[in-house]
Design a protein around this nucleic acid. Structure first.
Lengths: 207, 207
DNA sequence: TTGCAATAAAGACATTTGTCTGGTATCTTT
DNA sequence: AAAGATACCAGACAAATGTCTTTATTGCAA
C-alpha cells in the first residue's frame, strides 16, 4: 500500500484535476481520476470524489457516467443555445432549406424551436438598416401584424419585407425607394415568420 | 414504426442537440440522444451520430461513454458565452461603467475578455446601418486601422465613429451627412476598441 | 494500550452505455 | 419489378463505468 499523503493534499489535486477536465468540456470518469492521480484502486478516487461532494465543492449525478460537475455552474443552466443559419432559401418550403446550413449563432433562448437565422441578399431593406450579408433572426409564425418585418414566400421565393395589412389583401413593402411594393395574389404568398433580430458581422464570419 | 422524416431534418436536430449539450459541458450519451429525439431504438440515434461523424460534423472517442465531441479546435471549452451590455458610457474610463450593465447577450467566443456590448445613442452612424437602440459588440483594443468603426473616448465622452488615420492626426467620421467629423487634439482622444458586430432587437429587449 | 478516523487497496458486482445483428417500411434508381 | 439507399425499430451483447464490501496501514486522541 502506498504511504498516506498528509492533509487534504491529494484531495486538492483531485479537485483541481476535475476542474480542469470540466473546463475542457468533458468531465472525467472515476477511473480517469484514478489514473491521473496514480491510485491503484478505483475506490480511492471514488472516496475523494464523494468527499468533495460532501464538502459541497463538487456535485454529482449519481450513477451516471461522468456525472461529476461544479455545483456553482448548475445555477447558470442553459443560457443560450445555437440556432442554425440558413443561406440560400428559395423554391419550396423552408424544410428543404435545412440542407444549406451556413453555420450556427448563439441565441438567448431556452428553445431553438422555430427560430433560425437567414442570410440577407439584396438591398431592398437598407432603409431600416438591413443590409446584404446581415443575418436576420426569424421566429416561425404563420401570420404577423401590419408593420412587422416578415419573411414571406412569394411564388416559391423567400423574401424579407415590411408587412402591410390592407382590407382584403396584404402588401409587402421594401424599405428602399428603388424597389417597388409586392402585392401578391391571395394564396400565392405565405408568411414564414417574423424578423425579431438583425445581426451584422463586421469582422470575420459566423464564427 | 414511426413514419420516416424526409431529408436530413432529423439529423440536423440531432446535431443541434449534441451541440447544445456540449455547450452545457456534458456530452450526451447515445441513449440521451435517443430520448431527446423520441426514437424508440438506440440504434436510430447511433446511426445519426455515426453519420454526422462520417460527414465530419462531429468527432468521437470510440467506445467511451459520452464520447462525441466537436471536431476542430472548437471542442475545448464553451462555444458561446455571455458578454455584458453597457448602457450609459461617458465620463471616465470604461472600468467605471461596469456598474451600469443593462444585461447580457451571447457571443460565439471562447473568452469574454475585453468584449462587451454598447447601446447606441444618436443617429450619427445611420449611414452604415447603425441605429439608436442597436447594440454594438466591441472588442477592446488600444488602436485600430483606418476605416474601422471604433469606440473612442473624446473629452470624457464615449462615441462610435469611423476611424480615419491621416498624417500626424486621426479623424472620427460620422456616417450621416447631418453630422460633422471630429478632429480631436492628440491626447484628448483614446481608442477604446473596435466594433466587430452590430445587433438590433426588433422585439422585446435584451432577453 | 485501545479506539477511531482518514487514506489506500483489491476484488467483485450492478448499472450505464457503446456496439452489433437482424428486421420492416418508404422512397429512389435501375 | 428489382435493387439500393434511407430511416427506423427490436433485442441482445460487451465494454465502460459507478458502486459496494472487505481489508490494511497510519496518525491521533481518549
Amino acid at each position: 500500500m502506498s504511504p498516506r499523503t498528509p492533509l487534504g493534499e491529494t484531495r486538492e489535486r483531485v479537485y483541481c484535476f476535475v476542474r480542469e477536465r470540466l473546463e475542457q468540456g468533458l468531465p472525467p470518469t472515476v477511473r480517469e481520476v484514478q489514473a491521473a492521480l496514480g491510485f491503484r484502486a478505483v475506490q480511492t478516487a471514488r472516496e475523494h470524489l464523494e468527499r468533495l461532494v460532501g464538502e459541497g465543492r463538487l456535485a454529482k449525478q449519481s450513477g451516471k457516467a461522468r456525472g461529476y460537475y461544479l455545483p456553482l455552474e448548475e445555477m447558470a443552466g442553459p443560457l443560450s443555445i445555437l440556432i442554425p443559419v440558413l443561406g440560400q432559401v428559395q423554391a419550396g418550403a423552408l424544410s428543404t432549406a435545412i440542407e444549406h446550413i451556413e453555420g450556427h449563432i448563439p441565441m438567448r433562448t431556452r428553445t431553438a424551436e422555430g427560430i433560425f437565422g437567414l442570410r440577407i441578399r439584396g438591398e431592398s431593406m437598407t432603409g431600416v438598416g438591413i443590409f446584404p450579408g446581415d443575418i436576420a433572426v426569424v421566429r416561425s409564425q404563420p401570420s404577423a401584424e401590419s408593420g412587422d418585418i416578415v419573411v414571406a414566400l412569394v411564388d416559391d421565393e423567400a423574401t424579407i419585407k415590411t408587412l402591410k395589412i390592407r382590407q382584403e389583401r396584404i402588401e409587402l413593402h421594401p424599405e428602399n425607394p428603388h424597389f417597388k411594393p409586392i402585392v401578391p395574389f391571395p394564396g400565392h404568398c405565405s408568411i414564414i415568420g417574423k424578423v425579431i433580430e438583425v445581426r451584422r458581422f463586421l469582422e470575420g464570419g459566423l464564427h
